[in-house]
């Protein structure tokens, strides 16, 4: 069982976690783009989306006496994704309104935003712990998790396939949104120069709010995928959050395609690295990657391009 033998399996695993990181990283990168701020509470948006999606999907799964098949399971996953995304969006909306907007109105120093986001994160994590217990909450998969096909020696099972496919669709949708639509144009305008954007008639407040909501939709849906595969818990957001941020920096913060690339690369690096090192230290790899990028190439792989699609 050498590394070569494991290579393809590790690649598949890395792609799976990497695509999740990418989905979350977009939230960091988008908000960084428009506000030049790390949204420290983004991991809690992910967590709340995860709970929302998980509870909704679990409710549906429980209605079936055995594993639902065919269209039903597709439907359940879609409902989970939708509820997760909506919960994420609602959380992001509330976060922006409560923790950020009052400070923006006052033109508060940047430190204040970081601190108030920490407060929001602390609140959300512990509130969720109070409401839904401080433990891992799982659900039964709405589909049979069999091997779908092989890539060389590696098995690709249904779960992995669902995550990668859904994440890919979301990434493409977001890329199109930022690159092609009017809203995307506004987001890029605000990212480049908020003052000028205001003069050009862009409603900056609205763009900021929508940016949060888009990030929330993605993170919430990603949260559901995560919760469906592993579990949900009140402090589940932290580690994926730091990793997704690492992914955003790795790709070049503020750069949408960079965040996607960064997520995938980080997922792969971590997967290969986890094989080489002890599995319990797998989480350290992302951190080392973060410090390494900061030392070697702080602008990331694709460079910081605030306000450009790629």
């Amino acid at each position: 069982m050498g590394f070569v033998h494991q290579f393809w399996q590790l690649t598949i695993d890395g792609l799976m976690s990497g695509s999740l990181y990418a989905v979350i990283a977009l939230g960091y990168t988008l908000v960084y783009g428009v506000l030049q701020l790390i949204n420290f509470a983004h991991s809690e948006v992910f967590m709340l989306g995860a709970f929302g999606g998980l509870f909704a999907a679990r409710e549906l799964v429980n209605n079936f006496s055995d594993t639902p098949s065919g269209m039903a399971s597709v439907g359940i996953v879609l409902v989970g994704l939708a509820v997760g995304a909506l919960c994420g969006a609602a959380a992001a909306f509330t976060l922006e309104r409560v923790a950020y907007r009052p400070l923006r109105k006052r033109n508060a120093p940047r430190l204040a935003y970081l601190i108030s986001a920490i407060g929001a994160s602390l609140f959300a994590v512990n509130m969720a712990g109070k409401l839904w217990e401080r433990q891992n909450v799982t659900m039964e998969l709405p589909f049979t998790n069999g091997t779908v096909f092989h890539v060389f020696s590696a098995e690709v099972n249904t779960k992995t396939l669902v995550i990668i496919l859904v994440a890919a669709v979301m990434l493409v949708l977001l890329d199109t949104l930022v690159a092609r639509t009017r809203l995307g144009q506004s987001i890029r305008a605000v990212a480049q120069d908020a003052d000028t954007a205001t003069l050009m008639g862009v409603n900056v407040e609205r763009v900021i709010l929508l940016t949060f909501i888009i990030g929330g939709l993605l993170a919430g849906a990603g949260g559901f995928l995560y919760a469906m595969t592993f579990s949900a818990s009140n402090n589940m957001g932290f580690i994926p959050g730091v990793k997704a941020f690492t992914a955003a920096v790795l790709g070049g913060i503020g750069n949408v395609r960079g965040a996607m690339l960064g997520g995938i690369v980080l997922g792969l690096v971590e997967s290969y690295g986890g094989y080489v090192f002890q599995a319990s230290y797998k989480d350290v790899i992302a951190f080392l990657v973060l410090v390494l990028i900061l030392m070697v190439r702080p602008t990331g792989l694709l460079g910081e391009r605030l306000g450009r699609a790629a």
Binding site: V98, A99, P102, L103, A108, A112, I115, S116, I118, G119, A120, S121, L122, F123, A124, V125, N126, M127, G129, K130, R134
Partner: peptide, 20 residues
């Protein structure tokens, strides 16, 4: 004790809004 941090979180936000 487990609820304490809910209040601490709220305190931080309220301080940042009204009395940084």
């Amino acid at each position: 004790a487990t609820d304490r941090f809910i209040y601490f979180g709220a305190v931080v936000i309220v301080m940042m809004i009204f009395r940084p």
